[in-house]
């Protein structure tokens, strides 16, 4: 086999392989649309499920999912960002403490979601007495997404040009002032990208939530109520409810759409904030 033949083989094999991989993806989209579209509509989004989810909509699940996400992000973002700021602004990157925390976070980012489910169940639901609740679920999810938020925040803080910091120091801004006025606004698009990554993962997460936020289909009255997330609903409809397939597919379409919307909206929002903070009073 000469050179050009081998090259040709490589190109063709690669191309065929790509088609082979795209095939299930297209099939997945086709199947979800085929089964889900007839059910999908405003009615589906705005009504409560009935008959274990075989009919009706997903309104209370959207609310539960929103609450869980809110709890998750309102814990994970401050802690994660705080950790990133501490690592970046006060510790030398090669110090033992910094490397230790870094290693711990790297390993944490690979821990399977079911482990966070076990941990959340044991600590939040049982030891802290929160039971199967949105609070337990959100906290367990926060543990899971924490390393992503720290890592991406840290990268964006480190990417702020050194000149900005030097200029702030020349103006004798305090460390707090420099962080708030210069470093964080500049780094915010990157930080937001990390939050987006976290949101996407948290929205689709199921194993963490089964034994922390629970299964209850009713609309939650407070964060101490159990609430079923969209992803858990898909799982339940697929495995425990015969005849729930079309509603499961419709829920999956909603979930995928939410992940896509979250990804685009948060990013543009952060861009606005960054521009506002940096250009406001010049």
């Amino acid at each position: 086999m000469n050179l050009t033949q081998r090259d040709w083989l490589f190109t063709v094999t690669g191309g065929l392989l790509v088609c082979l991989v795209l095939l299930p993806l297209v099939a997945m989209l086709f199947d979800l649309l085929r089964l889900g579209l007839p059910v999908l509509g405003w009615e589906f989004l705005l009504t409560a499920p009935s008959n274990a989810g075989r009919s009706g909509g997903i309104a209370p699940l959207l609310i539960s999912t929103g609450w869980i996400l809110l709890v998750c992000l309102s814990v994970a973002v401050p802690v994660g960002l705080g950790c990133a700021v501490f690592l970046n602004e006060w510790l030398l990157p090669e110090s033992r403490l910094s490397r230790g925390i870094g290693l711990s976070l790297d390993v944490l980012s690979g821990v399977p979601s079911i482990i966070f489910g076990l941990f959340g169940y044991q600590v939040f639901a049982i030891t802290l007495g929160l039971g199967f609740s949105i609070l337990s679920g959100g906290l367990a999810l926060a543990c899971m997404v924490l390393p992503f938020i720290v890592r991406t925040s840290q990268q964006s803080l480190a990417a702020v040009p050194a000149g900005y910091r030097q200029a702030a120091q020349a103006l004798s801004l305090s460390q707090t002032g420099m962080l708030w006025r210069v470093v964080l606004p500049t780094a915010s698009p990157g930080i937001a990208a990390g939050v987006v990554l976290a949101t996407g993962r948290a929205l689709g997460e199921t194993a963490v939530l089964i034994f922390t936020a629970g299964y209850v289909l009713r609309q939650p009255d407070s964060v101490l109520d159990s609430g079923r997330a969209l992803a858990v609903h898909i799982y339940d409809l697929a495995t425990n409810v015969t005849g729930g397939t079309s509603h499961g597919a419709a829920t999956a379409l909603v979930l995928l759409a939410l992940i896509l919307i979250a990804t685009t909206s948060v990013r543009s929002g952060a861009g606005l904030w960054s521009r506002y903070m940096l250009e406001e009073k010049r």
Binding site: V79, L81, C83, F86, E89, S104, L105, L108, I115, Q175
Partner: peptide, 19 residues
């Protein structure tokens, strides 16, 4: 600020050991 962020770093760093 240093204290607060340090606390956050402590929580994040110890989470794995806690689990």
């Amino acid at each position: 600020l240093r204290l607060i962020t340090g606390l956050a770093a402590l929580v994040a760093g110890l989470l794995l050991l806690l689990i």
